[in-house]
Design a protein around this nucleic acid. Structure first.
Lengths: 153, 153
DNA sequence: TATTGTTATACTCTATAACTATA
DNA sequence: TATAGTTATAGAGTATAACAATA
């Protein structure tokens, strides 16, 4: 015999299949928009904020690494990196270990901007997630990790 | 005295502030890409899939409702809705209750496509979240809800 | 006056295909 | 041959401002 609770959960799953992904998209849009607002003075697009925040730890990364870390393709990053390089925020150096590859790293000028981007993310998390428990955060990380599985193909 | 565990957690928080939002963006990109692959036969963009999946429940929605549900602006939806309307997937009818407003609804032709989009989301969730517990899913929902808070202005 | 949605405009994002240089 | 990244190209996403119609 199925309990009332189990039935309710099943009905929810049937009716709201796909709702998790829709909610994910909504949250992604909302956070991107809020970050743009917080960093309005820096004149950065959402993708630029994302790229800079990834580089904010000071570690140099190949274009391809940045692409997979941000969920885009190298071709997408070319013009974005051009723009940030033109503004003096980062440089591309040939990787001595593989001279087909460019290592992207922040300049002294770009470092504070990248850290501001990262700080805006931290701040937004702190502001919006104050009432969320550690267990819920752990669940979020588990789901996000599972959803980010390498695409089939 | 601070335990080793507490220190490790604090160090993680300091170093990885912003990591939740970066992970969110990565997951959003990954799921969007996977949905595009699953629906390759339908020739739909990510935003079109998102809009159709929202409409898949058969309920008509105003353009503004669709915009806020998908995290965009009405101006963004105009050309997208034009495209889907031209393909015969949806129609815009004047809202009799407020004649400034258009109600968007699926056509008989669009309904199966929208349901395919929604089914692709459900299928992707089922495939990638099989090993995730109900408690983790609940945590994910809580965090996503908190991150989607209405932007400040 | 305020609001809904479109139009006009201008950039950015995104991917595919072709190309260069290197492995 | 295969891979890293760029260039060229084309279409889609995004927002702001101006506008029409309605509230």
């Amino acid at each position: 015999m199925i309990s009332g609770k189990a039935r309710a959960e099943k009905a929810t799953a049937d009716t709201e299949g796909g709702a998790l992904i829709l909610a994910l998209q909504r949250a992604a849009h909302s956070t991107l928009h809020a970050l743009g607002t917080r960093l309005a003075g820096e004149d950065l697009t959402a993708s630029e904020i994302n790229a800079l925040a990834l580089l904010a730890d000071g570690q140099a990364r190949a274009v391809g690494e940045l692409a997979s870390a941000s969920g885009t393709k190298p071709t997408t990053l070319t013009s974005l990196l051009d723009r940030l390089a033109r503004r003096g925020y980062l440089v591309r150096d040939l990787d001595p270990a593989d001279r087909r590859s460019f290592l992207v790293s922040l300049t002294d000028q770009g470092r504070p901007v990248a850290q501001a981007a990262r700080a805006a993310m931290s701040g937004l998390e702190a502001e919006r997630l104050g009432a969320v428990s550690a267990a819920e955060l752990a669940g979020f990380r588990a789901v996000v990790r599972a959803l980010s599985e390498a695409a089939e193909s």
